[in-house]
Computed example of a mutant assay.
Amino acid sequence: MKKVLFVFGTRPEAIKMAPMIRELKGRPEEFEVSVCVTGQHREMLYQVLDFFSIKPDFDLEVMKPNQSLFGVTSSILVGLEPVLDQVSPDVVLVQGDTTSVLVGALGAFYKKIKVGHLEAGLRSGDLFSPFPEEGNRLLATRLTDFHFTPTPQASDNLLAEGVDASKIHMVGNTVIDALFWAVDILKDQGGNPLEDLLPTLDWSRRIVLVTGHRRESFGDGFQQMCAAISRLATDNPNVEFIYPVHLNPNVQKPVEKYLSGQPNIHLIAPLDYPRLIWLMERSYFVLTDSGGIQEEAPSLGKPVLVMRNVTERMEGVTAGTARLVGTNEQAIYEAAQTLLHDAESYDAMAHAVNPYGDGTASRQMADILATAK
């Protein structure tokens, strides 16, 4: 039996860790599982944990108001040491590219514990975009023993950096495992979970889901994104644009300035994971700068326009499920207009094959860990 410690701290990590936790806990003869959350996110993190019925064994509760990367990093590292001592795991599993990933891998390294990195090998090629995620990925890679990559491109990225091929395992992305699980839960629950937030919305109309919050776009880029959405709403009055707005003031201020007051733009509070998935499935297409949504939406047959200048998820762009449109107002506007008014272009994206997996990533990783020495 192998002792496995999961370390994560944000909502996206929790989503992608949840099916792996379920898989390992479902094999008690092979794995003893412990879960440590850092608390890098708080309310949003526990929304996901509650939805998937996961109870952490440890909560470091590191987040404080206006805390810097220095503070978060040092708090996680100090808090993680006694957890590692108590659990004494054979493997520490981290996911993605957050500060929790970097420090989880570093703490395991300090204790000479093996590290498994879910969603390994993503690269944008720009150390400062996304920031600090690209740096976190690069640093965590050097400390990792099991590189669980989502796509062949991610594996190739690691090989190009000199990672031993025997340590690289292409399994797909657990975000697809989680998505299928969540859709099943939502179908069992039934109903419209957004009826209370949008009681007057005409759900028979086409709906565009908008998400935008990345710090590298703050300033002019974010203003242009908002200007494009405003134009689209004006020129397409029979299309509803729903934007769950991140709480960061750098997001809220330009969104309020450019997008409030238009009848077919609906600015709502951030959605928990199940309601976001429900809305994504209900949408016509998605305008986003989110990483996870670039992977999830194609599994639901939804085209994705990526409002970023670079993305570490080029597989979707290559496959045709996503299009990188940048943060230029005219480019965003034209790409969205094409999807709204050109059925052939829309169908080509909606029916492209999702390159991020088939929902079996968790099982594949568990099999690898179970037999590893």
Rank of each mutant, 00 (worst) to 15 (best):
Y46G: 01
Y46Q: 06
Y46F: 13
Y46S: 05
Y46L: 02
Q47C: 04
Q47Y: 05
Q47E: 14
Q47H: 05
Q47S: 05
Q47N: 07
V48I: 10
V48G: 03
V48N: 01
L49E: 05
L49S: 09
D50T: 14
D50G: 05
F51C: 06
F51E: 14
F51L: 09
F51V: 08
F51Q: 12
F51T: 12
F51D: 10
F52M: 14
F52G: 07
F52A: 04
F52T: 05
S53G: 11
S53H: 12
S53K: 15
S53Y: 09
I54S: 07
I54F: 07
K55Q: 15
K55A: 11
K55R: 15
K55L: 12
P56I: 07
P56A: 06
P56Q: 06
D57P: 08
F58P: 04
F58V: 03
D59V: 02
D59S: 03
D59N: 10
L60N: 02
L60I: 01
L60K: 00
E61W: 00
E61Y: 03
E61M: 08
E61P: 00
V62T: 11
V62G: 02
M63S: 15
M63L: 14
M63F: 10
M63W: 06
M63R: 14
M63N: 08
M63C: 06
K64D: 07
K64R: 15
K64N: 03
P65W: 10
N66M: 13
N66H: 14
Q67G: 09
Q67A: 11
Q67H: 13
Q67M: 13
S68W: 12
S68Q: 08
S68P: 08
S68C: 07
L69E: 08
L69K: 10
L69V: 07
L69G: 08
L69M: 15
L69D: 11
L69H: 12
L69W: 11
L69P: 05
L69T: 10
L69S: 10
F70Y: 13
F70E: 12
F70Q: 11
G71E: 15
G71T: 15
V72Y: 12
V72Q: 11
V72H: 09
V72W: 09
V72N: 08
V72C: 09
V72R: 09
T73Q: 10
S74Y: 08
S74P: 06
S74H: 14
S74E: 12
S74G: 15
S75K: 14
I76Y: 01
I76D: 02
I76E: 02
I76L: 03
L77Q: 10
L77I: 08
L77V: 06
V78I: 14
V78K: 15
G79C: 04
G79S: 06
G79H: 02
G79N: 01
L80I: 06
L80F: 07
L80D: 04
E81M: 13
P82G: 03
P82S: 04
P82M: 06
P82T: 04
V83T: 09
V83Q: 04
V83A: 13
V83G: 13
L84T: 05
L84V: 04
L84K: 04
D85G: 11
D85M: 10
D85Q: 15
D85P: 00
Q86R: 15
Q86K: 15
Q86D: 10
V87C: 02
V87R: 02
S88G: 09
S88H: 10
S88P: 00
S88C: 03
P89H: 01
P89V: 05
P89S: 00
P89L: 00
D90T: 03
V91R: 00
V92C: 00
V92A: 00
V92D: 01
